[in-house]
């Protein structure tokens, strides 16, 4: 019984990492398995979110507070990962925006956002 508790607490200690992995894999799965171009982009965003979590977790210091200098606190979380991820989020938004813009244009040009149908139409007008 105690083994189980130990295992469970070991798992729970690293729960953020497991979430990271879950997000990453499910995001990739959606990208690969879905033919709908918007859904693919959703998957891609999930995948990117996992990266954010990976970095943020690394920057967490136990008992630390937000890294804003204040005489009342001595322990802060590491600020660098946050800054990095701020940048990564910007990149992620840009990617998503561009991707969606492309999907809109594809929809205008093909009248569909399903990959199979688009390939079908390209084959037809050879």
């Amino acid at each position: 019984m105690s083994d189980l508790v130990a295992a469970a607490s070991g798992f729970l200690d690293h729960y953020n990492q497991y979430i990271t992995i879950f997000l990453m894999v499910s995001g990739l799965y959606i990208v690969i398995a879905r033919g709908n171009m918007v859904k693919k982009l959703v998957g891609l965003s999930l995948f990117q979110s996992s990266v954010y979590l990976l970095y943020i977790s690394a920057g967490k210091v136990h008992g630390g507070t937000a890294p804003i200098i204040d005489p009342g606190f001595t322990v802060y979380s590491h600020p660098l990962p946050h800054v990095l991820i701020l940048t990564a989020i910007v990149v992620g938004i840009a990617t998503l925006a561009l991707g969606l813009a492309l999907v809109v244009r594809i929809n205008e040009a093909y009248g569909s956002i399903e990959e199979d149908e688009i390939f079908e139409r390209d084959r037809d007008d050879k």
Binding site: V31, K40, T95, G99, L102, R105, D122
Partner: peptide
């Protein structure tokens, strides 16, 4: 087809 090519590149490149 350029649109689709760019989209595919976007997916792969982002991954």
């Amino acid at each position: 087809r350029a649109l689709v090519a760019a989209y595919q590149y976007l997916i792969v490149g982002t991954i």
